[in-house]
């Protein structure tokens, strides 16, 4: 996707707001190890929408960060919807081809198989943790720091620590029941 013809560019002021916003999104996205192409797709969509929003680029030059944010937010939702739709179409076409046309999964090295078995055991054990604790444990194992869990859920640090500590203890107990021992007692605190 590209912007319409030259001469129909965004004003310098608007470009500055979009650039600043885009730079900040990229900075945060890097922290989440997001694919840069995802952010680029959204920011390009933002530019197109802003360009279409007003008749002249001078008029949109006055927009604020919050206007760019709202545009980016709806653009991201539309990008996500489009991707889901493409994925669904792809799955449908694969289904229509029939199972015979699809290559059978190739067995990986022994290590991969072991990791995948362990992953399935861990996933199964997490699924048995009480619902109130489970999302915090998942987030923690996915690499989000405790402060971010607290911020996202609007929890105090104490509540987050408590839920995480208990959730991880539940997980260890379940894994121990499955015969998976622990090298050392570790916690989120």
């Amino acid at each position: 996707m590209t912007l319409p013809e030259t001469g129909q560019h965004l004003s310098l002021a608007l470009e500055a707001v979009v650039t600043r916003f885009g730079a900040m999104v990229r900075q945060v996205a890097r922290r989440y190890r997001l694919d840069e192409a995802d952010v680029e797709e959204v920011m390009q969509e933002v530019r197109i929408r802003l360009w279409r929003a007003r008749e002249t680029s001078e008029q949109i030059g006055e927009v604020s960060t919050s206007y760019v944010y709202r545009t980016a937010s709806t653009a991201a939702l539309d990008v996500i919807r489009r991707r889901r739709s493409r994925r669904a179409e792809h799955h449908q076409s694969v289904d229509e081809k029939g199972a015979g046309d699809i290559a059978a999964p190739v067995a990986g090295p022994h290590g991969d198989l072991e990791a995948s078995e362990l992953g399935a055991q861990v996933a199964g054990a997490i699924a048995t943790i009480p619902e109130s604790r489970r999302p915090a444990v998942r987030m923690y194992l996915a690499g989000y720091p405790r402060e971010e869990i607290a911020e996202l859920m609007g929890w105090t640090e104490g509540k987050t620590r408590n839920l995480l500590y208990r959730g991880l203890a539940d997980l260890r107990a379940r894994l121990t029941d499955l015969g998976i021992g622990w090298q050392q007692a570790e916690g989120a605190s």
Binding site: R20, F21, M24, V25, R26, Q27, V28, A29, Y32, L34, D35, D38, V39, V42, T65, S66, Y69, A72, S73, A76, L77, V79, I80, R87, A123, I126, E131, R134, P135, R138, M139, A142, L152, M153
Partner: peptide, 29 residues
């Protein structure tokens, strides 16, 4: 929602994208 998002590769990438936009706004504002 969080329980699903943190267990689903695709939804998590979507969450991180939307959260990046939220955080950019928070930081700039």
């Amino acid at each position: 929602t969080l329980d699903h998002v943190m267990s689903c590769h695709e939804c998590r990438a979507e969450f991180d994208l939307l959260r990046s936009i939220e955080e950019a706004r928070t930081q700039l504002e």
